[in-house]
Nucleic acid binder design. Sequence first.
DNA 1: CACTTTGGTGACAAATATATGACAGGCGCC
DNA 2: GGCGCCTGTCATATATTTGTCACCAAAGTG
Lengths: 234, 234
Amino acid sequence: MHNKTILIVDDEAPVRDMLRIALEMADYRCLEAENAQAAHALVIDEKPDLILLDWMLPDVSGVELARRLKRDELTAAIPIIMLTAKGEEDHKIKGLETGADDYITKPFSPRELVARLKAVLRRAGPSTPEEPLTAGGLVLDPISHRVTINGNPVDMGPTEFRLLTFFLSHQERAYTRTQLLDHVWGGNVYVEERTVDVHIRRLRKALTVDGHERYIQTVRGTGYRFSVQTAERV
Amino acid sequence: MHNKTILIVDDEAPVRDMLRIALEMADYRCLEAENAQAAHALVIDEKPDLILLDWMLPDVSGVELARRLKRDELTAAIPIIMLTAKGEEDHKIKGLETGADDYITKPFSPRELVARLKAVLRRAGPSTPEEPLTAGGLVLDPISHRVTINGNPVDMGPTEFRLLTFFLSHQERAYTRTQLLDHVWGGNVYVEERTVDVHIRRLRKALTVDGHERYIQTVRGTGYRFSVQTAERV
DNA sequence: CACTTTGGTGACAAATATATGACAGGCGCC
DNA sequence: GGCGCCTGTCATATATTTGTCACCAAAGTG
């Protein structure tokens, strides 16, 4: 896996340069945005692993951008570090309230920056959940990377595993194929929507016991939904 | 659902060709305009889903066109991607400020174009309401895309689902068939008015419990109204 | 009551959407 | 290289949905 990508959002070019140099020294990949709109576009397109966000931005304030990002399910998981100037410290609490995961007061040393950043990244950690995910008799243990139904091991390919993981953490919710591609395949891949169907089928096949599969429902005209079928008509 | 329509606005024919080819490969429908005026006309007539707009145009600059489109309520919702040449990068910020949703710097690869475009379209995507809509014992949950009456699942086709969604958010109000076609089917479709009757019937059938349906009333000479029948005459 | 309008229904064929089986390329592993 | 497992795409089979009709019932009209 390549290095983490950090998105720098600041309107002052010298600050961006400084940040970029510090981060690239520490082997991070950097993206830069000068304003909230560009930042938003980059977040969607590039899915950075972390966002360094200046409190003050010319257009929308950084706070507002943070709030927006945290509200959007697609981007909510990305940690945000706020940059606030000395005098703005009062705001830091508010900054945290908006969903930022940490704040750094300017001026700061590159070392401090990198340290904080590492800490936040570590905390956000590998997004693999530690607890087993379950639904009905189905259990997916992220640690051992195993799936069982009523204790019987089930096996499937990597993609199906990721798909199932996603579904288990988002049960009862209908997703379009596009959304599934975004979440399970990861943003900018160019893959046919129909491909989702195929993997759904593979997953269904894997989850079939006694010729029955009680987990994935087709939502016609929309996509799919994962939920344990409560009752079955006979 | 048919494919998205993209409007290409560029004064250089070779560029337009290149774009069109790339887009048609990716199965988008393309419209082309050579100048701002033609573009504006096409936007009104065809309601493209996205506009690819060159920064430099012979008559009005692309920026100006974007600004105009974003100012008009009818067209404001259409995402715009700006094409800027290498040297014009300084302008990109300005481009975003005018209301463009993204920018691409020439030269770019077809893959990048399509990826960006998809991202923008996705972002613009339909915003589903988050809260369940209810009426009497009827509950429609937009998230799970499910309908229940007193807890019992109800099932219906996509059109009926949309129709019900519309009714639930506009209860107690009579709509003509034409209005329903506009709102539920979406403007520019040519569909017989009587078709509404049929879907109303289908929806009624789906909402029938114990031979009774208490939600949709016929407003003779006008159309239909959704409202929970409070009492039932015996 | 005879006659005119307007809405309700069941049947259909065409259009769409989804399920499935097959297949070829990519990749890691002997 | 040969082999086996994954993957993304297709082409094909199935399943649903949809827009229209023709025809019947109900509600107005005079």
